[in-house]
Amino acid sequence: MEGVKLTGALSADEQASVFPPNERAERGPVAVIECVQQIPCNPCEKACPFGAIEVGPDITNLPRLDLDKCRGCGLCLSKCPGLAIFLVDASKSATEALVMFPYEYLPLPAPDEIVDGVDRTGRFVAKARVVKVDTGAQREGTTIVTLAVPKQTMHDVRSMRLVAPGEVFLCRCCEVSETEVRQAVREGAKTVAAVKMRTRAGMGLCQGRTCRRLISRVIAEETGQSPADILPPTSRAPVRTLSLEALAGGDDNE
């Protein structure tokens, strides 16, 4: 089972039909138009200010790229409604290549962030560094991300995934994230009680029953202390919640 018709991802043959020769990519940036079905569509043709893309009068023709006319400006990337155009550039270094692709998800990555470069099926290919995140007005809401990837993966990486796809919350009662707890420890909070003071972790309804071990672990990781030395915060009544009224009913007089 292969090919865009069956899997949604280009087969090896389909890829071969659209890849520019490596020498071209070594010379500088160039478009890769991964549009292999005859659909009635041609915005790419108009998008290119250098006339490098030709569809012709029959708009179901496949777009053809003139490798010499293409200057790798990337303008066509955000015009293609199919998000089918990418840019590769192998000219910048011996080991790394740049890959540019449209990315219409939030949150956006930040420059220099390390992300997972993924292939046409969303599978991880290689760790990649974000070089540029272009949200300019001419992009009309389609952000163009540029990644630096290992050169041999330049024809495989076609999108990315953020490495931390969401915050990890250690204290769910007070919504304190792992990042905040680490930050607090780095600022000098070396005990669960001190982390609690700085972040409120463990101040909620469960009074730390859920999060205290998770916090201890972060402290141990950050400070190198043994978990044996990381004690729970001071234990005070009530160990389960009780109503003010019930407490008020007591008549202890020690």
């Binding site: 009544a237 009530p238 202890d252 020690e254």
Partner: peptide
């Protein structure tokens, strides 16, 4: 009946909604 506090050898117990030592 929850023992919600221990004060030396005295226990604070919330028994069926009532606070008992």
């Amino acid at each position: 009946a929850v023992v919600h506090g221990l004060f030396d050898s005295r226990l604070a117990v919330l028994h069926a909604g009532r606070q008992v030592t």
